[in-house]
Each structure stands twice: as structure tokens, then as C-alpha cells.
């Protein structure tokens, strides 16, 4: 049962154009932002898989992820300007495209984000399930299954994570 509430079906309230390619990924980006302690990353590498890799520009998946990483929510009308805003903030970002499906999670809408600020580095794997609902399946090197709706308080979810998930992994960004 991925969908738990009537507001998962009638909702989210969001900027278009795609609930799975835009709204769901804003949450994954914002989750990463909260995992960095409510900070915008200085450097970020974003790997898009499968359907995401094919259609990310048209759906604004890139803007949605960067918007989330800048701390925006799904209703934020500034999401359409997120690329320009990320450049203004001097964020060193790069999108990497993998045409195949993600090795960690079998779904066409998957993304892996490696983000850094100062000495902090986090790796987050997220899947957008449709209707604005998403799930975090990887934090650093620990597999997990954290369901995110666009209404969740992502900061408090991050604050409740077990300590072993928060240890930095060694892979280079």
C-alpha cells in the first residue's frame, strides 16, 4: 500500500508539469538538502536512470531536483528558475545519464544524488513512484525504505534517522 491518504490521490498541489518527474523529485532533492542539515550543497552529482535519463529536460526533472536541493517545496513557483538560481548560488552541479535501470532499485524513475557541503557528504537514492509520492531507498551505503509524500516534514524525518546511515561513505564525488 504505497498510497495511504486521500491527499496522496488528490494532490499534491504542485507546479507542473509532471507529478512523478517534477513533484516527486522535488521531495528527493529537498530530502537531500535536509540531510545536509538544511544546507544547499556546494557540489552535487546527480545520476538519472532509465525514464528519468530520457525525459528529464522536458519534464523539468533537472529544475525540480535543483529546486529541492536549494530548499524549495513542490508548490514553489521559483522551481522553473532553479537552474539559473543554482548558477547564481555558484553550486557546482552535474547531471549524469544512465540509460539502463538503476542497480539498487528496479523502477524507471530513479535518481542517485551525491551532495557535498564543507566536510559533509551524503549519497541519497530516491525513486519517484507517481502522484508526487517518492521513496528514499539508499542513504550513504545503507539500504532503506523511507516513503515521502510532498506534505511530510522532511527535516523531522532526517532528524529521526539512525546514526549508522549518517556516516560518510568513502566514494569520491
Amino acid at each position: 500500500m504505497d498510497f495511504q491518504s486521500c491527499f496522496d490521490i488528490i494532490g499534491p498541489v504542485m507546479v507542473g508539469p509532471s507529478s512523478s518527474h517534477t513533484a516527486g523529485v522535488v521531495s528527493i532533492g529537498k530530502f537531500t538538502y535536509e540531510l545536509l542539515g538544511g544546507c544547499q550543497p556546494e557540489r552535487v552529482r546527480i545520476t538519472l536512470y532509465d525514464s528519468f535519463a530520457q525525459t528529464y529536460q522536458g519534464h523539468g526533472t533537472d529544475k525540480a531536483l535543483l529546486g529541492g536541493l536549494l530548499g524549495m517545496g513542490t508548490e514553489d513557483v521559483q522551481i522553473k528558475d532553479a537552474i539559473a538560481l543554482a548558477k547564481e548560488e555558484n553550486i557546482d552541479y552535474q547531471f549524469l545519464l544512465e540509460k539502463d535501470h538503476c542497480p539498487y532499485y528496479d523502477h524507471p524513475n530513479t535518481v542517485i544524488i551525491v551532495a557535498e557541503v564543507g566536510y559533509r557528504r551524503v549519497k541519497v537514492g530516491g525513486v519517484s513512484l507517481g502522484g508526487g509520492l517518492s521513496q528514499i531507498f539508499l542513504i550513504n551505503d545503507a539500504e532503506t525504505a523511507i516513503r515521502l509524500s510532498t506534505e511530510d516534514d522532511l527535516r523531522s524525518i532526517c532528524n529521526r534517522l539512525p546514526l549508522y546511515m549518517l556516516t560518510n561513505h568513502q566514494q569520491e564525488v
Binding site: I9, G11, V13, M14, V15, G16, P17, S20, G131
Partner: peptide
């Protein structure tokens, strides 16, 4: 929705 305006996904934006 296509203009990246605010809509309600019912059940999706598309």
C-alpha cells in the same frame, strides 16, 4: 500545467 503553473495532481500532474 505545461506552463509550470500551480495545479493539483489528480492523481498525477499529467
Amino acid at each position: 500545467n505545461a506552463r509550470m503553473g500551480v495545479i493539483v495532481a489528480t492523481p498525477t500532474a499529467g
